[in-house]
Design a protein around this nucleic acid. Structure first.
Ligand code: FES
Ligand code: FES
Lengths: 151, 151
DNA sequence: TATATTCTTGACAAGATTTGTCAAGAATAG
DNA sequence: CTATTCTTGACAAATCTTGTCAAGAATATA
């Protein structure tokens, strides 16, 4: 199970696109600047997201990328599967044969872990994460203000 | 978040030790053979497990390793933290500063994922996994027998 | 004591993956 | 026509994973 910067960058960039859902197209240059992601690297990741039908692109001046569906219909898990290729936690790729041809003692454990993580990632849309991020950040700011007022 | 063969081998080896909890000490040679794990590699992993207080060792003929506590008091998560050093899913190592010094849009998402995975791994002892593995395997065998009988 | 066994420690190396870059080309707006 | 922006393929540096090895220390047993 490898969740690398590929997956993290891809999700962050997608969240940025979700935030600006009303805008037309957003260029890699803008995204790269706003989210501190190396441009040419993001380029590479966006190939996969486009191939997976998550992003739509447009060339030329004013061109760029946007989500191909509303942000509440795109799940974090879909983004990650599009760019990560080693998310499976089993040693046997699900074949159940990693201990001299048969199931190792931990096979069911890794399978359960896979399901757990997949559920987590597939249960959350871009919209969900954005809303959640705002809520917690607001709470944090309120607490800080209270503390400052009290101190 | 990187779960590599290090963690998987370590857990499998620990499960083997848990299965033979009554025996005295088990040598790396035996473990390596039974679980199809490269001996010298396991050696390296066991250093960490010993340092973490999970294993006890004894040198000389008849020596080897055994669990330092009953198998129901050792959690999968403890084994994994002992050998894996990149389990954290956040990009910022929890600092909340990976987007030009402040929290990126996905920070809370990765933090939640961390908690989810940690809970999963810390809720399961070696004994739990062993029992679970046996149950499912028995169920599977029963079903197979029924199918064979019916076919 | 001599010997075979087994862990202990430190270091090293091959291979794979990740991370990031680049350049040439195609499409498009103005 | 020109500047912009994606598109594609390839490449390279850095890092990590995976696995190996050898010399040494401890211990059981004859
Ligand atoms: S992980 Fe599937 S058999 Fe070992
Ligand atoms: S993951 Fe923590 S700030 Fe981005």
């Amino acid at each position: 199970m490898h969740l690398t910067t590929k997956g993290k960058y891809a999700v962050t960039a997608a969240l940025d696109l979700a935030m600006h859902e009303n805008n037309d197209f957003i260029s890699i240059a803008d995204l790269s600047l706003r989210q501190s992601i190396p441009g040419p690297y993001l380029e590479q990741l966006f190939r996969n997201l486009r191939k997976a039908g998550i992003l739509t692109s447009h060339r030329g001046p004013g061109g760029g990328y946007k989500l191909s569906r509303p942000s509440n219909e795109i799940k974090i898990g879909q983004i990650i599967s599009a760019v990560e290729d080693r998310m499976d936690a089993t040693q046997c790729s699900g074949e159940g044969n990693c201990s001299a041809g048969s199931k190792c003692l931990a096979h069911n454990l890794w399978t359960d872990l896979n399901n757990q993580v997949q559920s987590f990632l597939m249960d959350r849309s871009l919209e969900d994460v954005l809303r959640d991020s705002n809520n917690k950040s607001l709470t944090l700011n309120n607490n800080k203000k209270l503390l400052i007022a009290a101190g």
